[in-house]
Amino acid sequence: MYEFLTGPAAIAAFGIFFIGLIVRVIIYIRGLHWQMDRVTYTVNVSYGIKGAIRSVIAWILPFGSVGWRSKPGITLLFFIFHFGLLFTPLFLQAHNFLLKERWGFSLWTISDPTADLLTIITLVAAVFLVLRRIALAEVRILTTAYDYILLGITVAPFLTGLLAFHQVWDYHFWLMVHIISGEIMLICIPFTKLSHVVLFFCSRIQLGMDFGIKRGGMKGKGFAW
């Protein structure tokens, strides 16, 4: 079971994840239309590139945009959550050990206590995201069951990983559930709004080009995101 899940199943999950995301980006770019979107993507390119870079940088850095600065609490929550989501699994010792063993390469790693802490922080951030959805009327009205399901799919590998690591109840059970939930998450990303792992960049680049080329980018420094 373990061999299968970390072997062929893992290859399939990663394959679907990477190919799926590449396909999403290709579909996005092919669906852009200069006249319908009213942005000359292939003319005035230098303004487009400048606008795109400014748009991505302002929003990928904590407090990098007026929008992030206007909501410090949520901003902190979002960045902690996303940092934990990305950083923990990538640099976890156990994952890299497996990587080395199966595919012959590994990344720089963090210590287990650090990973432990990051996992707990990520889970706590997720709880706060749920509470925020319930507590704030302006978020509640937007929230659907789908949002909770996706959050569940996203944090399941963290929760199960934590339980496995601390050998709560049955290590092997949690390990299997952990691997399966991780693979489910990978497979879901291209097919759900979790595809924002790449579409965030597509959308931000597109809007950056829109403002950079057409909406004022040629008239000065550009939009003060």
Partner: peptide
């Protein structure tokens, strides 16, 4: 599709 329903 991708709107995160964050309410920002």
């Amino acid at each position: 599709e991708i709107c995160a329903h964050c309410g920002m």
